[in-house]
Design a protein around this nucleic acid. Sequence first.
DNA 1: TTGTACGATTTATACGTACAAATTAGAGGT
DNA 2: ACCTCTAATTTGTACGTATAAATCGTACAA
Lengths: 358, 358
Amino acid sequence: MATPKYELVKTYLKDFIQDAGLKYGDIMPTENELMKMFDVSRHTIRRALSDLINQGWLYTMQGSGTYVADPNADMNLTGKMVGVITTYFKDYIFPEILSGIDDIVSEEGYSVLLGTTKNNSARERVILNNMLNNQLAGLIVEPTKSVYPNKNIELYEAFMNRGIPVVFIHANYRGLVTSYVIEDDVHAGYIATKHLLDLGHRKIIGIFKQDDMQGHGRYQGFISAHEDAQIPVEESLVKWYATEERDGFINEERLKYWLDAGGGVTGFVCYNDEVAYDVMRCFRGMNIHVPRDYSIVSFDNSKLAETLETKMTTVAHHKEVLGEKAATMLLELMKDPTAIKEEVMIPELIIRDTTRRI
Amino acid sequence: MATPKYELVKTYLKDFIQDAGLKYGDIMPTENELMKMFDVSRHTIRRALSDLINQGWLYTMQGSGTYVADPNADMNLTGKMVGVITTYFKDYIFPEILSGIDDIVSEEGYSVLLGTTKNNSARERVILNNMLNNQLAGLIVEPTKSVYPNKNIELYEAFMNRGIPVVFIHANYRGLVTSYVIEDDVHAGYIATKHLLDLGHRKIIGIFKQDDMQGHGRYQGFISAHEDAQIPVEESLVKWYATEERDGFINEERLKYWLDAGGGVTGFVCYNDEVAYDVMRCFRGMNIHVPRDYSIVSFDNSKLAETLETKMTTVAHHKEVLGEKAATMLLELMKDPTAIKEEVMIPELIIRDTTRRI
DNA sequence: TTGTACGATTTATACGTACAAATTAGAGGT
DNA sequence: ACCTCTAATTTGTACGTATAAATCGTACAA
């Protein structure tokens, strides 16, 4: 026997519930009626019903009948969760993004299920599989290694196929049609660089991270600002580093070499506040003063930028707002899966003490 | 019929598994044997087995037999989770604690389910109820408002009654017998104060937070250090603030008043690095130099403490290690519920640039 | 030693019957 | 109009029987 009779009854009953649009409490046909309908024994009918009861489709009341169960009953039982996947979160900006997300979703009674990929695709895959097994209401992702093609796209598709909405932050995947919120990194790089150019700087070192889209976007803005000001960019002034090189990439020797080779450099555009801090720390050791000797602009407006004695001129990320927006978009997608939005956050230059006119 | 026959069979089988200490894969009696044992029909036996299969106790292989199922098999299906409840996490030390926890539990394939109470008992209650509905493997909690008696103890007991281990960090509840990891705040306060006393300071202002146990512990150490050095404590030099007052509590006027009223104050013991930072910022505005004019010791050894030009003398929290220890204890409790441990982390004084001998 | 075939064992599907227990609806009385 | 009792309906428990499908061990052959 290819498919057992009770399986046929089960499929029929499930389809019946959906097609007839039955809701919680609606009554189903009696066992007797089903016996006649399918011309099978009562035992077979009861086997089918028993399975569906165990799977949460139906419930019975002795003497009364069989009824449609509340499909959300077990959802309520398992508690509502939203998944959040980031690369790191010890890092200086993720706590604020996460905090923004938590603020919004916890209002609606959701908890946050966390996963950190450490910029590792294999870990991302493990986490995604793990989260697929939990009955998530939605997922917010900051993708891993965003300049390289991601191998886990089919897993994101698996979420969406199951009707679990996904929202991306900081990047979006080509081919995946869903909401995302990104920052205009090109514009951020542009206004940072333009600020230095407006102040009269002509030879500017740019330090960028090579393995995420933010680095490339800011670099692109760096170039555009030069082009608009009709100032040529010397490619030798552009420095790239990879995530792995991060520690120790900025040191006194290398900085000295850059400045000697650059010839007449007066400004720095640094990938983020941490890089800028490293540069400033080295300069202190080299007895170089900021902004007297060199001007520095960086990105992110982290705590670092405003705690130092010489507060940093930096391009502000709206970290907490970004989290809040992503969470709001996710909640909207839960209610209406077609409510796909794309949000680009415009960054803002905050002028403080590390830049001056020359 | 009081209790159905198949219920009797079910209870027998469940007891049999436990009493005989059967494990995953061990074979059960055949349906025929059970029929003879209970003198019931095969149908009745199958009804009992069917129930136990649905509840995850057993599984069957046609032609082979009935076997004991892995009790964690359905856990694997729903994805393994560990709950973490903190007061805040945007705050400067929680990301590191959380990161330490995540590092350990993710190795074992668990994800972290997050909840932030914002120091609010009602929120804590909602989060706990929500988490009770999710099938957690364990729970790590930093309790809310730890000096006041907590109303949610019965909820923590509910977790433990269900066999879900709970580990507390930063505090432990009287009456709840479970693992916890705390820092020796009294000792922290002691070595911080002793450091200043050893350097010759005699009049020291202490600034403490009134509504958590850390504040009171550090205050106690502050007192002990004075007593051991046989130097009287002037209660007027001890300042208390509540969480709500935090912003703006430290300002130039108030500092000026404290110093004028204090008469001969030369040192500060500050509840944490943030308070110390506020004091230093005000001093800069008042043209007062640290450590020339006043010495300052604080607690936590946060990023703040080492990024400033005048790096802070501070008592180090081992934040990430604390998270790792809590996670390790939780994993141990999962394997062996009797492996209850109490860990007290001994803090360490890190002497940097904000203290000097007078 | 290895592979195959076969029978015995064991679970899976499916039919039928009987009575018990709870609910529901209707008949009948007040 | 309201209550009560009763019969019909509906699900729950339980027995019996038959056949199919998968597995396992053993006997036998290569």
